[in-house]
Simulated scan of single mutants.
Amino acid sequence: MSARALGIDLGERRIGVAVSDGEGRLATPLAVIERSGSRQLDHRQIAELVAEYGAEVVVVGLPLSLDGSAGPAARGAEREAEQLEAALDVPVVAHDERLTTVIADQALAHSGLSAKARRQRVDMVAASVILQGWLDLTGQDSQP
Rank of each mutant, 00 (worst) to 15 (best):
M1A: 07
M1R: 05
A3H: 12
A3V: 10
A3R: 11
A5H: 14
L10W: 03
G11W: 07
G11D: 03
R13N: 09
I15V: 15
V17D: 03
V17C: 12
V17Q: 01
E23C: 01
G24W: 10
P29G: 09
P29E: 08
V32Y: 02
R35H: 05
G37Q: 07
S38Y: 05
R39Q: 14
Q40Y: 00
R44F: 02
A47I: 06
L49E: 06
E56S: 15
E56K: 15
V57C: 12
V59H: 06
G61M: 01
G61Y: 06
L64I: 07
S65L: 13
L66C: 01
G68Q: 08
G71W: 06
P72G: 06
R75H: 13
A81L: 00
A81M: 02
Q83Y: 09
E85Y: 02
E85L: 02
E85F: 04
D89C: 01
V90E: 04
P91A: 02
P91F: 10
V92F: 02
V102F: 15
I103N: 07
I103G: 01
I103A: 15
G112A: 07
L113C: 07
K116S: 11
K116G: 02
A117L: 11
R118M: 04
R118T: 09
R118H: 11
Q120F: 01
Q120R: 13
V122P: 00
V125M: 13
V125N: 04
V129L: 08
I130Y: 09
L131V: 08
Q132E: 12
Q132C: 13
G133H: 12
W134G: 03
L135T: 05
L135Y: 03
D136T: 14
D136V: 02
L137M: 09
L137N: 09
L137Q: 14
T138Y: 11
Q140S: 14
Q140P: 12
D141P: 00
D141V: 06
S142W: 13
S142T: 14
